[in-house]
Write a protein that binds this DNA or RNA. Sequence first.
DNA 1: CGGGCGGCCTGGAGGC
DNA 2: TGCCTCCAGGCCGCCC
Length: 273
Amino acid sequence: MPELPEVEVLRRSLKPRLVRQAVERVEVLSPGLREPFDHRALKRLAGRSIGGLRRRAKYLLIDFEGGSTLVIHLGMSGRFTIVAHDEPAAPHEHLAFHLATSERLRLVDPRRFGLAFALPTAKLEDDRHFAHLGVEPLGSKLTADHLRCLASNRRGPIKSFLMDARIVVGVGNIYASEALWRARVHPRRSVARIGQGTWERLTDSVRAVLGQAIEEGGTTLNDFADGEGNAGYFQVSLAVYGREGEPCVRCGRDLRRFVQTGRSTFYCPGCQH
DNA sequence: CGGGCGGCCTGGAGGC
DNA sequence: TGCCTCCAGGCCGCCC
């Protein structure tokens, strides 16, 4: 479920609850997720305090005092929430961080596409999960010129380009469709056929849609929740995603869906070219 | 070399 | 009610 806005909403909700809190005990309840857990590295976080929470791409980074970082990725179905200490273990609860406040921070992930690992904070940038990542879409490095340069040696459809984490991070299947609709660009349009003005519209649209989604608490289609278990409400603001057959709010034509590189793409045939 | 596709998992929805 | 198929917000690696 989580693209950049959902991870950012999660970060903001957890931050006041976790900063300066001590993790008293770490429970590892399963062998792992997409990758096996490094049991010992996770257990070494016990007894330390949390210094801060950051986000890089769709990864949540929890920095511990003493120079360790816990990296959490929610995959498709992950939830990372604070519950009462005596809350019974949930199905598919994989990790539990017991806090000094007699609460626990737990990672639940039925499909196990997520990820959790700990490493020295100083080694984060060189880690294989981060080394290849492109620019943050809400930072100053995402510009029309930057995208145009990276597109110059490539072909292929703009939607795949926007979802390529080597180019720009955090844009997944929902927000790619939404940003393209806002920019009035057809998802199949080749990156080779996009001019400067359109790159400007695309960068503006990506920023705008991600920013608004954060403000509205993320998109909860099925099971996204912030750190306190609250659903988001950006799903009511979605213009095209999941709305096949509904009229476009901008031009009135019926919205369409097709499969592009194995994923559903939604667009308006009337106003995206 | 870059882009496309299958595979990884479980569960919910919908058809019959 | 039950069984089957399809589909899902991410990502990696293999293949052409």
